[in-house]
Amino acid sequence: MSAQVPQKSVLGRRLLLGAPLAVLALVGGGWALMLRRMAGGNFDPHSLPSQLIGKKVPDFSLPGLDGGVAMTGAELQNPGRPMLVNFFASWCVPCLEDAPMLNKLAKNGLPIWGITYKDKQADTQRFLSQNGNPYARIAVDQPGRVAIDWGVYGVPETYLIDAAGLVHWRFAGALTQRVVDEDLTPLLRRIGA
């Protein structure tokens, strides 16, 4: 009795051998891309999508730093030109890393408004004198409630707002050159800065 097991074609066998290798190469490639983006700051596996994207800035009213001009949501709901809003604090270490890039962006003519998160005003002033002040306006969110309305879950966070007050982009963490080059600059070009 001789069993006639149907033989697989040579091509079929090759495909069967190659499939795991192809899957491995695909996963490896994806992994490498992820690591590259993580190193450049474009990708953070813990980062959350902002619920404000495509929406107007929420209503709020906050006092200015050291008795400066108060800041309201209404001003940011129709700023007339694209700008950044940056939540920061003197006690936050990534904010130190964030400062040089913000200074550079401000020097290049991009308006940046700052909102301090749970910070003492004297500490904010010291932070600004040590690390430069890129902010056109600074408001104080001592209780951190306005930050919650924005969906802030850590500092620093940077929001890109267009001329009509729509939020286009939120970045959590210190801005890097690569994030500015690959994410922020193309967006700014698109919304017409």
Binding site: L48, P49, Q51, I148, D149, W150, G151, Y153
Partner: peptide, 10 residues
């Protein structure tokens, strides 16, 4: 819903 509106379904 108040929380989801701010932080998403995450």
């Amino acid at each position: 819903a108040y929380m989801v509106q701010r932080y998403g379904s995450f």
